[in-house]
């Protein structure tokens, strides 16, 4: 296994935390539409982007995950009225802090993806994967 990985180059381990109303359904729609995208991201479902405590970003990175993505409904479309508005502020502030402390910005990502944006979801996963591949493995806490 290890050998194979070496040969094929670096395969980042990515986590996507998705809100169940928009982004998770967008990701499902990408499946229904049989779009193809990179298999590196493992998805975790939560009710709302507001549930995504920014500390998850830190915990992900200190757990040696190479990149972590938050994704929720577009501003204004939140199933819980304004959850994504609060989530946005928390995310942005914490991302700035982590970057200031030396984390690569590519590892800490957020997106808005609606239930109808299957194509966008596939693009997000692909581009996050490519960016993190370029950035390299997260060895800071090993």
């Amino acid at each position: 296994m290890e050998e194979k990985k070496e040969k094929n180059g670096f395969e980042p381990r990515l986590v996507g935390i998705l809100c169940r109303w928009c982004s998770y359904q967008g990701a499902d729609l990408a499946g229904t539409s049989r779009l193809k995208y990179e298999p590196n991201m493992t998805v975790l479902r939560v009710p709302c982007s507001a549930r995504m405590s920014p500390l998850f970003l830190m915990k992900g990175l200190t757990s040696d995950i190479d990149g972590i993505l938050f994704s929720g409904c577009h501003p204004g479309d939140c199933h819980y009225i304004s959850g994504n508005m609060n989530a946005r502020r928390r995310f942005v502030i914490f991302k700035k802090l982590l970057e200031f402390a030396g984390m690569e910005p590519e590892r800490i990502q957020m997106s808005w993806c609606s239930a109808s944006e299957d194509k966008k979801w596939a693009d997000i996963v692909d581009s996050v994967t490519i960016e993190v591949k370029k950035t390299g493995p997260n060895n800071k806490f090993k």
């Binding site: 975790l44 709302c48 609060n86």
Partner: peptide, 28 residues
Amino acid sequence: CGNCISACPVSAVDLKGYTNEQILEQLQ
């Protein structure tokens, strides 16, 4: 929705079915 959970500095609030502990275990 879990907005309160992310806002709480001491993790005194939690969301049944999506607890902090559960999500941390998932990440780890």
